[in-house]
Design a protein around this nucleic acid. Structure first.
Lengths: 350, 350
DNA sequence: AACAACTTTGGGAGCGCTCCCAAAACACTA
DNA sequence: TAGTGTTTTGGGAGCGCTCCCAAAGTTGTT
């Protein structure tokens, strides 16, 4: 039986209201009273019941985080996408005294997915929602829009993009930059192993590749472009296909893909970067755990979560009224796999 | 302004109480009334306010998940420990109509850690708590015990182990099994690269190594045992040290360590498994992404989360009263790196 | 038809807070 | 000292539910 306001009031010889004022730091309390009440609160280790506060204030100080099944399944293997985003969110939320309620996309059938969505959209427990990996969550995004729930998307949603506040990166520009870098190093026959093209990010990165090739006046043979999911397996098989095309360089849709591609190259005895230059995307910790270390596009995953949270809180505090689209900056991290550095030894596998 | 019970009651021409009975599936409602009310609820898409329910029932249907800073930082890189545990928890919780509130160990100073702990132990918002990676959360565990909060630990806590309900694996037995396997394959000079010894699991795995060596009557030179954290870096440097000792086989405290060790072996031009056999621990997806594929102890990470959640719910529903210690089964996954299979080609890096 | 026994329904109280308003206390001025 | 304005305090109402109890309705028996 924890104590309540009334108990503290009795112990301090004041009224419930006065204790409430002290707890909420309301100015109209005399210094003497405030001190007396604070002392009792401290002695009793009193914490007001947040549920009662929620009921009366109609604010829960809770934000919901939805992570799609796709994101948890495909990203959580070596890529630390999901935990990294969550950390970015939790950091900011905790600092601003918000709690985080986590929903993971169910791995069950469609109907249980629907009931989860219903629970998210009709939940009266969160003040707002962050949708992680929004481009994989079309249905949820459209429901949230429809029910006018306060929410922020991470990654560009496939629908309603102009009506939704979201945080993403300039995928086109980033991929463009990677390809341009390879062109600058003298590579001409550049192929790409893209991610799943129904995913906005993967599609945009591919677009960036095409744009850079086009701008440089370089041809793109259709067989130089392969796509699959974001995994190392896709990178491995994709690379095998590209090797048949005799490409001189490859940009990939993710570091995972690049890591798989690297294995395929090494298995085939192809020198990296001497024979084929390779560029990843994401800058995962794993990119530095291979030889040669991966040149890659730095992807501010944690910052995405943090920025989205700041936006959501601004939205909830009504500091923002119009939907905002935020593109966080990326940059190329040049390591060994692109050939821009003079690597002391080129490693081959026989 | 969402509707409330009273609104539905008015629309259905009954009383608040009757609507409440329908919502809660109370038996004492006539079939006609039940149908009439259900219709209105469906039409209006009514969902009772969970906060009001919480206040009156004194149950929130929410469980808290605490993940220590150590776990998020050290495990989240390629190892998918954190997201995998969370998935196990969320699966069960969602199925039983519980929500999950996530707290991540702060990366700030000690004092903010303390305030987070205070918030967790005094929170009146969750019915119970799961502590992920309890052996890294001594303070929190002791506070939870002290405040008699309902909680379940994942991994064996360092203190109060007999008074706490926890879910772990038999680390000693698992490591013992791995070493025994190598001995059975004819290896004698077996070294180990352990995880951080202040971590219970790492320490227990090391104990299993010692026990197996002792039982087989094999000597253990102090220099055959190195330890550090659970990372690939530690594996890399640890392996370099063990190579100087001329070991024939190495068991490791984690797959991450083993992956780093493998890189060190390949960088040194040592054949795996021909010259040195290698066994990992965890069975991460990444264990199959290298050549040779890693023989490793399968660690049921997701199941740990799921089991802990079932226990917590049983605790909350008062189906259990005594602390329980659960040891989930592990098994050895034999792949190429231990030399038990006839691998077609042994890969060397020159 | 009258009564008992059971089923169904409605309304009050209360969970622990916040917010509003009015009363009390205090400070100052004429 | 009376009167004004300001600060501080207390108590009622109400957030949206559940639970209890009593009233009303229904059924069956003699």
């Amino acid at each position: 039986m924890p104590l309540n306001l009334e108990d503290i009031a009795r112990l301090a010889g004041v009224s419930r209201s006065t204790v409430s004022r002290v707890v909420n730091q309301h100015p109209n309390v005399s210094a003497r009273t405030r001190e007396k009440v604070s002392q009792v609160i401290r002695d009793q280790n009193f914490h007001p019941n947040p549920v009662a506060q929620m009921l009366v204030t109609q604010r829960t100080q809770l934000i919901g985080i939805f992570v799609s099944q796709t994101a948890t399944t495909f990203f959580n293997d070596q890529s630390a996408y999901f935990p990294t985003v969550i950390q970015g969110i939790a950091d900011i939320a905790n600092n601003q005294n918000y709690g985080t309620l986590l929903w993971l996309g169910s791995n069950d059938n469609e109907s249980s997915q629907g009931s989860l969505y219903r629970r998210i959209t009709h939940n009266r427990l969160t003040d707002g929602v962050i949708v992680v990996s929004a481009s994989n969550s079309r249905q949820l995004v459209s429901r949230l829009v429809e029910m006018s729930v306060s929410f922020v998307a991470i990654e560009k949603p496939r629908d309603f993009a102009d009506r939704v506040t979201y945080v993403t990166i300039d995928n086109v520009g980033a991929a463009h930059m990677a390809v341009q870098h390879l062109i600058g190093l003298g590579r001409r026959k550049i192929g790409t192993i893209a991610g799943p093209l129904e995913n906005t990010d993967a599609a945009e990165r591919l677009a960036g590749y095409h744009r850079a090739m086009h701008e440089a006046g370089l041809p793109v043979h259709p067989d130089w472009v392969v796509s699959g999911d974001f995994t190392a397996e896709n990178g491995y098989t994709g690379m095998q296909a590209l090797l048949k095309q005799g490409v001189e360089a490859v940009v990939t849709g993710s570091d995972q893909i690049a890591l798989g591609a690297l294995r395929a190259l090494q298995a085939a005895g192809v020198g990296v970067p001497d024979d084929v230059a390779l560029v990843g995307f994401d800058d995962l910790p794993a990119a530095t755990n291979v030889t040669p270390q991966l040149t890659t596009v730095h992807h501010p995953i944690r910052e995405k979560g943090a920025y989205a949270t700041r936006l959501l809180l601004d939205l909830l505090e009504e500091n923002i009224h119009e939907p905002q689209q935020i593109f966080l900056p990326t940059h190329l991290v040049i390591r060994q796999s692109c050939g821009a550095l003079n690597v002391p030894t080129s490693v081959k596998v026989q």
